[in-house]
Design a protein around this nucleic acid. Structure first.
Lengths: 208, 208, 208, 208
DNA sequence: TACTAAGCGAGACGGTACGTCAGGTCTTTCG
DNA sequence: CGAAAGACCTGACGTACCGTCTCGCTTAGTA
């Protein structure tokens, strides 16, 4: 998904070499992202209009369309900006414990309305927008998933999980359960829910 | 969700008592649902227009709006009509085997484009449409889920699953894994995938 | 210029055979034309916006664009509606007198702000819009011009104008003088101005 | 109309004493006027964009707006630059002959696309731009018109025109005929057309 | 040799109007 | 009285130009 030159987190495309012309307004960029976060509701992407974003941000529609190709791209950036920092991976402890911590972070994210609303909107929109789906995977899911797979492998090696377990299937089940509650059942993601999931899996033993 | 008088599967609301006036055209109803199934694509609900449905069905928009309140309701009916029959619950065998069979049916449904496209569109749309979300749960998910919970309980009783397991968490993980692949990762739902999931869980034993 | 089905004066395209569907709203049509006449100013066509017309007429833009392809077409219809009636050709009298009367009518039209403003706007716009130019000629100028040419020919036959005079050049000069004051010099078109023009030409005699 | 400091023909505002700062770029000025002449088409002023002028001239929009307040002012300068020289008034001969020569020059101007296009665009734009209208009269029409009025007066004195003729009405008719063909009828301005106009008027005699 | 002043190209900015599109509602006529 | 046809209002869309604004660079006169 093309989300604009400066859309990423740490990639300042034209920080350096003093290109000619008026530089991009960081103020405008931030105002657009903030307005988007303010305006996203449970109505999702369709309930968000570019005109409203422009109006609240004090920015012209032309400026928005200059830097973001679609509403979804704006929301993607707004979400990434918001979430990026707080989703660093947990450090110490045994593999399964760290995996549980990571699940807990994701669950807390899904519980915070400020994050849940844009996230759900993005997941919903990505169902009919392949570019957005790819961007969501690349910029939010993939890295965490890769790290988590590493933890599962370690856990297997450490005997915390059954030796023959398929790490991807394990992760599908753990994260899938969270997404299932978020998107399908609407059941609450209580604080102990990640623990219960991991406990269920951690108990796996190949029958002797 | 209000999906119109005749929205259900077998409920002909005014079959009988010869009310005055021209009766509702069953032909029109079928044409609308067929057109909807034909026109739904990976572009989802936003890629489906009522005008197009009306045009392809040879039906006027007014007729559509007389019987369905929204596009989503039409698609809901179209999907229910399509799926209802083939999702009867499997009968014989041990509890875990029957659960695996049921997972397999859901996975096959998710693999068939004719069913996957409307289903994904409905799930996506239900993220910002509480009525649709409720309708989807009531008419597609809940009954199957209840039956599945019964199977899990039986499996625990039968010693196929750990005694302390939380049936809801178990189901969240199993179905969640399917939904995760369908909606998030896009990884294929191979024929053996349900087996692998159940195997992973079936191996659960409380550590002695 | 395509100015919409019912754009002409007396051509009711679909008055007759009871076509299916909701009939075109005559109320909307009149409201658009009236709003256009109200909103046209000395700022010309660029000073007139379709949004404003829609707003004042209580009509949607979509409806406007359904029936008129451009702003100019709307104004053309508004002008034709307004002017059509009052520009019937004068009847009795000698040829030169009737020509003078006709010039007088045109001059009065050019003096009436309600007519002058749309007319000047149309002439200006027609300079960079060939379709509009053709429509203006066909629907406002041509018929009158043909009748006037007939009068000049009669006047020549009657000895009121020089035998060798080129009728087209004569008309170019008479009408051209009016347009010159309207468009170029801005000098007033006084009531006696047409008389003075005709007098000047009526005095033409080939030198004996 | 305010057409910028150096917009006129002979008024070099800052010819004088070496003001501080970088002097205005004559290259830029010429490039803008040339680009404007190149880009003006039968689409008129609305078909000409400042961005395009800037692009083709290799000049920034800011520079353009520093020296010209509007598109029309640019075109006005471009036209004046182009036409100024070749429209000097004819010298020798009898008054009516010189008037005919002058009409011929104007007609040739109106036939040359390079001049006609900007001229028509200016006349059209001046219909809803009073400043432009005034500038057009002052800088292109007035002087010629004054000289022509002098010729008509001479012609009357010399017996080439009727003694009682109103010079202004005569000029309105002669020039009006040219403008009528240019702006309204679109009929060609043939080489002999001015002759025919003058002949028609030159034949005027008060009936004995 | 600096320093100051203004013009310059590049290009982003806020704003306004454009013409289009889909959603729902309505008003006809026909069956 | 249901249904097809199709016109209607609403509101958001994405685009195009406008005229303004920052940049950093260039080109002169002045110190």
């Amino acid at each position: 998904m093309e989300t604009g030159p400066n859309s990423g987190v740490g990639d300042e495309v034209r920080a350096d070499p003093a290109r000619p012309g008026r530089p991009r307004s960081e103020r405008a960029r931030q105002a657009v992202l903030a307005a988007t976060r303010d305006l996203i509701t449970d109505r999702g992407l369709p309930g968000l209009t570019v005109d409203d974003i422009a109006g609240r941000a004090g920015v012209s529609k032309a400026t928005i369309y200059r830097w973001w190709p679609t509403k979804a791209a704006i929301l993607m950036d707004a979400f990434t900006d918001l979430v990026g920092a707080r989703m660093t991976f947990p450090a110490g402890g045994d593999p399964l414990g760290r995996l549980r911590d990571q699940l807990g972070r994701v669950a807390r994210l899904m519980n915070d309305p400020g994050a849940r609303r844009p996230f759900v909107a993005l997941v919903a929109a990505s169902q009919h927008d392949p570019e957005l789906a790819a961007a969501l995977r690349d910029r939010f899911i993939a890295t965490r998933r890769d790290a988590a797979r590493e933890l599962v492998t370690e856990a297997i090696r450490a005997g915390q999980l059954a030796p023959g377990a398929d790490p991807d299937a394990v992760l599908d089940m753990l994260y899938g359960a969270l997404y299932y509650r978020l998107l399908i059942s609407g059941d609450p993601l209580t604080a102990d829910y990640p623990d219960r999931l991991v406990a269920l899996l951690g108990a796996v033993r190949t029958p002797s």
